[in-house]
Write a protein that binds this DNA or RNA. Structure first.
Lengths: 131, 131
DNA sequence: TAGCTGTATCAATCATGTTAATACAGTTGG
DNA sequence: CCAACTGTATTAACATGATTGATACAGCTA
């Protein structure tokens, strides 16, 4: 369900925040469904509960989950966060387009590639891939 | 010419590698033109020559420059590196377009955003910015 | 030869992520 | 009520990596 990429330069807690928030935005994790407990997830990933806690704290701070002491952490209603998610994607697109520009890729080429890349995903619609 | 972004999470030497390689890919720095000397650039940026040296070593390892002891470092022929740079960008664009699709961003929206993001970078290029 | 170049090495420092241990507080089911 | 689970907080220790600073060596050139 959740994994850690050791080659990812970012800290573990940041990876967890991204993984979970993606699953929520994509509605793989539904509103009000329970998150794995801090200690359980820590055991599964072979990391310390402290690191998971840090990720959960950040997820809560950003509004992706809500936590109740003694009960657990639960997926929040992420619809209001869709806008934020989109802006995250857009900012990454901005960063990428900058690199494309700097690599001598023309605007047409970049835009065309964006379109065909997108369509490639819609074509692979079946949904074979789930984490 | 070259600046350091303190808000950038990446280490200074990596920023330098990116800045310089960008300039070379875009042919702002021409093949065989001299790089600033290790100590000169270090003084300009108020960092240690050690950090600059690390960036130069990486640039040389990646084929962007060649260094001659006693003479200096010089811009290499970066044409052979273009293909590698572009393919890496395209694969990241593919990954990003998948996330956009799953986040409910339409193809038109994604493609339009790609175009405007790209143009934003070409606009910012005008040359008001010099360090 | 003086003064520039790249290159190498070493120790010290600093920031940050991560671990580990422990404790406290709230909920729940037996 | 209590054992066992939940989230939360705190503290110290450790590891890694970036950066600094100092010093030294080697090659080029005016």
């Amino acid at each position: 369900m959740i994994f850690i990429d050791v080659r990812d330069r970012r800290p573990i807690y940041e990876q967890l925040v991204e993984r979970f928030s993606d699953l929520m935005i994509r509605d793989v994790l539904k509103t009000d469904s329970p998150m794995p407990s801090v200690r359980t997830l820590a055991a599964e990933l072979s990391i310390t509960p402290n690191t998971v806690q840090r990720a959960y704290a950040e997820l809560e701070r950003q509004g992706y989950i809500y936590s109740i002491k003694g009960k657990g952490s639960f997926v929040a209603d992420t619809k209001p966060l869709l806008k934020k998610s989109r802006s995250r994607i857009m900012s990454e697109l901005s960063e990428l387009s900058g690199r494309a520009y700097r690599s001598g890729i023309s605007e047409e080429e970049f835009v065309n590639a964006a379109g065909s890349c997108y369509r490639a995903h819609t074509a692979a619609e079946g949904g074979t891939r789930n984490d």
